[in-house]
């Protein structure tokens, strides 16, 4: 089975986020990027499938921030191939445009299974995986906690629902799966192994194909959450404070 894992780099929140002068994007000048957490799980899920059933895992990342680091780490962890999509504009793309670009690449390589994180801190509503499935015209299941491939031509996924419910769903391949978590946490890969991967493995680079992407959303303003109105502090003796409380309640029409 050929598995493609899409890895997205997201801003590292240990650094303070700043808004760019344009007012509609993050200031990327000092930004550091790290691999999105659920993509890390998607990679782990792919490696688990490979270990169990054989096959080939290709890690794919848009060239942003420390994408190379993430790809070498993926190779060190057991991925067979790593592809970096270059030529991404400075300000990046919206998720749907990114999905269109990645979709064009994956259409060519036509893997049996495409895994990616179901959401990311810059994609909390999880556009990426679903949009990708739509572009490729493939079945999609999101929020999975395990993916298994007991038979040919299909996978068995466990998907979580609110309220402590879970479902087991059979999905025909090829398909796109939005991974919430792998059955086990992403494994630790020692630095020596990553350093070795840097010396002995190569990442293939690919110019991102230009695709006309329908961008339905326009960011009008990006801003830091504005603090809500501050709480009103009462002081005085207990009697005075009690009187103040009564006045407040009366003024708001809560007591008569």
């Amino acid at each position: 089975m050929n598995i493609a894992v899409l890895l997205s780099m997201v801003p590292d929140l240990v650094e303070e986020l700043e808004i760019a002068p344009s007012g509609v994007a993050l200031d990327t000048q000092w930004l550091r990027y790290l691999l999105s957490e659920s993509d890390d799980h998607a990679l782990e899920q792919a490696l688990l499938l490979k270990e169990r059933y054989g096959g080939k895992v290709t890690a794919l990342a848009l060239d942003r921030g420390e994408a190379e680091e993430a790809l070498y780490t993926a190779l060190a962890r057991g991925a067979d191939e790593a592809v970096k999509l270059t030529g991404i504009p400075e300000e990046g793309w919206g998720k749907r445009a990114a999905a269109a670009v990645v979709g064009a690449v994956l259409k060519e390589s036509a893997p049996d299974l495409i895994l990616t994180g179901v959401q990311a801190i810059d994609d909390m509503d999880g556009h990426m995986a679903g949009a990708l499935a739509g572009i490729l015209g493939l079945p999609f299941v999101g929020v999975t906690r395990s993916v298994d491939a007991p038979g040919a031509g299909k996978v068995l996924v466990q998907k979580e629902y609110p309220g402590g419910m879970a479902a087991e769903i059979e999905v025909d391949l090829p398909a796109v799966i939005g991974v919430l978590s792998a059955p086990q946490p992403p494994r630790y890969v020692p630095v020596a192994r990553i350093r070795e991967a840097r010396k002995t493995r190569t990442i293939s680079e690919r110019e991102a194909p230009s695709v006309a992407a329908p961008e339905g959303l326009v960011i009008r303003r990006l801003f830091k959450p504005e603090p809500a109105e501050r709480a009103e502090m009462l002081d005085g003796t207990p009697e005075e404070m009690a009187r103040q409380i009564v006045t407040i309640l009366e003024n708001r029409g809560l007591v008569r």
């Binding site: 946490p185 020692p190 630095v191």
Partner: peptide
């Protein structure tokens, strides 16, 4: 460590150290 068999908290510390140069993340 070579086999990645470290407990979760230790893994966090190691990952943080390799990324930020300190175990506090």
């Amino acid at each position: 460590v070579t086999r990645g068999e470290v407990d979760a908290r230790l893994q966090d510390a190691l990952t943080a150290t390799s990324r930020y140069g300190n175990s506090f993340g």
